[in-house]
Design a protein around this nucleic acid. Structure first.
Lengths: 129, 129
DNA sequence: TAACCTAGTACCTATTAGTAACCAACACCA
DNA sequence: TGGTGTTGGTTACTAATAGGTACTAGGTTA
């Protein structure tokens, strides 16, 4: 006989570049990308302002993550030839779309934060006891 | 005078455990969590079946990520006292909610995959040329 | 007893992120 | 005219952590 119906319903997640899930995780699954995107939802902002608004981020990681977001087309970088030089970052249309989409996820997570904490507590207590 | 209105509109993202954004990134921003969640959307599944459906995952990471998902209350682990022992993993209601929420993000990313690739190409060409 | 399930772990390496120093252009100040 | 500050970085080194390889361990089947 062939495999049961249940087996056939199960998807296989291939290990290639076309997998949309692996792509989205690779692009924004790092520690800082989403925070930067959300900071820019409030409007264009400069490097050092972002640095102070996103607590704990180092200069190195801010530079690097902004570059990656720019490369993927989520963020636009504009240099103003003033003294001292001003560099402004803002969301592109693509970046706005991504932010809106991620926002729903964060909103869900925020709504269910208490449940997650409760689950953790239960799990940890079971392991200790 | 006080800071301009624009400054006041800008959120600050604090570096604490209460930040919902940092929480969601920490919980499912790793390489495998989302893939496992989506695999379980198709219904309960066993360890080795998951292992073969999620291409490229190692035994170690599957064990570890399932543990974390169980701890957070997204996945329920059930041991069947058979021989050989069977262990089934399935989504909890919380896990189903999270999966649905993440799914919208992945769908968006899939829709805009081409735009992102184009942006990357432009960026890389500009840097080379 | 070999071969093959099951789930899980010990160990080590590869990647990622953080720290801190430095670059560069110019202003301001004494 | 040289020190200090402000802008937005880069580079080199180090710490943390994520992830892969190879193994353990119990049991079935041939």
């Amino acid at each position: 006989m062939m495999g049961s119906r249940k087996d056939e319903e199960r998807r296989v997640f291939r290990n290639d570049e076309e997998c949309p899930i692996r792509n989205v995780v690779a692009q924004i699954g790092d520690k800082w990308s989403i925070l930067i995107l959300f900071a820019l939802v409030d409007g264009p902002d400069r490097f050092n302002s972002l640095k102070s608004r996103i607590e704990g981020i180092s200069q190195r990681m801010l530079t690097q993550t902004l570059r990656d977001l720019e490369r993927d087309g989520f963020v636009l970088r504009t240099v103003y030839a003033q003294v001292p030089v001003k560099v402004e970052y803002e969301l592109t249309e693509l970046g706005k779309g991504l932010s809106a989409s991620v926002w729903k996820l964060v909103a869900w997570a925020d709504d269910h934060h208490a449940d997650i904490r409760k689950a953790r507590q239960r799990y940890d207590e079971k392991r200790e006891g």
